[in-house]
Design a protein around this nucleic acid. Structure first.
Lengths: 354, 354
DNA sequence: TTGAAAGCGCTACCAT
DNA sequence: ATGGTAGCGCTTTCAA
């Protein structure tokens, strides 16, 4: 059996409390006694206070849970997610807090169980979807949490850090519209759950269940509506994942069609890189014959010459962690909207023949 | 006050154990009673069993700690580390185990404290250095651990997954030597702690304190010794970090010198990409006028046409986690050596004028 | 400066 | 199928 604090105390002939103080509150006993206790501990092979027991007693853990939609491995594969995490970890470091990375199972029952079983002091929810029930599970557990998207229905306990998705999307779409593009395709990940890759009809951008996607599609639509291109005239393309391959697969059909779009606006850089891949395979390089835009401004975007919207990934992570670790005094302080920038590179140009 | 299991039990008029069973062992009570208990819990706002208390009682946590040298944010910045983590997380997922990502403070005292305070069932040590005292801290805590480098002095409790660093390094150096290169530079991260960027003298490759670096430098040296180039004739270059920028900075001086090397062999792809950056800035593109090799074969290596050594990053992570979560039956099973491949691309070529 | 007592919230065993 | 009992290992008043 592993020795416990009691064993150490017994060995030295002091009480358990004194032995505990030797570890947690050195100022509460004489240096000599403390040395004696630590010595005995070493001799007995006492591993030091059990962190779990300590957390139980103290009432907090010193760790925050970071929840991801889909597999945990996704977190390490998506460059934007990685930078977000880097930001979170920077803040956590400063607070001596660990990060418990948690994959979010697809089915709701298991989500509850994951949330209920995590030994953490709060949650950072980095979700791709509108996982309202995830938040409910967290609320039910009575833990604080921060999400990474603005929430219209944010209650006083809700904290979030996000960007104005709609305005950001509109900025890049305005740019494309100004270049004369009218026959355009919009590309998003999982517009509707379970939808196949490729063209998809939706009554309006507001019908996308996912709030981030909804915001961006709406912003795109706004820009084109302003130049007389109504929603039904826009081609909506569904990708089955947020990856290059899925992006490529999603555009394959329309690119091969009779009247391909003159521009493709994607909801993420990763997706748009897939479009570039597909075009490159055909020997094309944007803006000829097709302009392509992304969203996020990940590192690869610069190398690819991608026109995109930059959002401050690390900053977002940093703020999210701060919102959790340094609780805002007023509920209003619990909401942060970050700035975005349109980054124009070489992947967009005037519509051919204009 | 948050209600506890006792409150729920009281409300329903059952014992605490029965209430507990309603959550943890549904088969131990009638469905009707269970429903009644769960209902009361909901009504009272009982958040479900406290994970910390449960862990304490059960004796295990359901999480493993992943220890990184340097900042946690590094983990998300180095592509090889990211892929390693993806592998670890895949296995962890399968076991319903969470990952606690832990930065490793520089000073030993804080390392102990970090290790001692983590609520985990074991550690995966992904270290850049030869942090023997880290392992000692873990051993002292009586926790299992796995490291990511072969250890000559591995005891029965040591588990590791690694590659044959020396042989792998030799394979790429043999290739470079066969191309006729004799005036070469070797580039490594933190050859000696605190050393400035650029050329550095070392009596022999065995003097590098860091085992991975030592292994790779030794492999490089082996190859050139075999063609008559002894260690002192090789230029050793120190980088102050494992980053492109540090790689670039490390080679700046020798590239600008009178007799620049005809080949640079780096201990990581990231470093060699920095060399490519520096050469590109001068309008050069390997193999002209200088051949460059990397190590790891990260994604960017292919795009850059880098000749390198591929090591299975995800596999390494997967195996590391398995070693921890599916304890080997015999100590010998605790050691895994993974295969590596020489990947020849365009960054290496015959020595100019040969 | 030290110690005694009282739990933190839960689960597992054993009995009924 | 249900309940009683006995801790898991620790920290923290409070009193001495």
């Amino acid at each position: 059996m592993k020795p416990t604090l009691q064993d150490v105390a017994d060995a030295v002939g002091v009480s358990r409390s004194t032995a505990s103080n030797a570890y947690s509150r050195p100022d509460q006993l004489s240096a000599a006694l403390r040395a004696k206790i630590l010595d005995a501990a070493r001799r007995l092979g006492y591993p030091g206070p059990n962190p779990t027991a300590r957390s139980l007693r103290r009432g907090f853990v010193g760790a925050i849970g970071v929840l991801f939609t889909s597999e945990l491995s996704y977190a390490f594969t998506d460059p934007f997610a990685v930078r977000f995490l880097a930001g979170v970890s920077r803040t956590a470091e400063r607070h001596g807090t660990s990060l418990l990375l948690m994959p979010l199972p697809a089915d709701r029952a298991r989500v509850r169980s994951v949330v209920e079983n995590a030994s953490v002091d709060g949650f950072c929810v980095y979700c791709v979807g509108d996982e309202e029930w995830v938040l409910q599970a967290i609320r039910d557990r009575g833990q604080p949490y921060v999400t990474t998207a603005p929430r219209a229905d944010a209650g006083p306990d809700d904290r979030y850090v996000g960007i104005d998705e709609r305005a950001a999307a509109r900025s890049v779409a305005d740019h494309v519209a100004a270049l004369g593009h009218r026959r355009v395709a919009l590309l998003a990940d999982t517009v509707l759950p379970g939808a196949p890759p490729g063209p998809l009809r939706l009554a309006g951008p507001g019908d996308a269940p996912h709030p981030t996607t909804r915001g961006r599609l709406t912003g795109f639509a706004d820009a084109f509506a302003a130049v007389g291109v109504a929603w039904p005239a826009l081609t909506l393309l569904n990708a089955t994942a947020n990856s290059r391959a899925a992006g490529a697969a999603a555009v394959a059909e329309v690119l091969a069609g009779d009247e391909p779009p003159t521009a493709v606006l994607a909801c993420s850089d990763v997706l748009s890189l897939g479009v570039l891949d597909m075009l490159a395979a055909a020997g094309h390089r944007p803006p000829h014959p097709i302009s392509v835009t992304g969203f996020d401004d990940i590192a690869e975007a610069a190398a690819a010459g991608l026109t995109t919207v930059r959002q401050p990934a690390e900053e977002k992570g940093r703020l999210a962690a701060e919102l959790l670790l340094e609780p805002p005094t007023t509920p209003a302080d619990g909401h942060r909207l970050l700035p975005t920038d349109l980054v124009v590179r070489t992947s967009t140009g005037p519509v051919p023949g204009s």
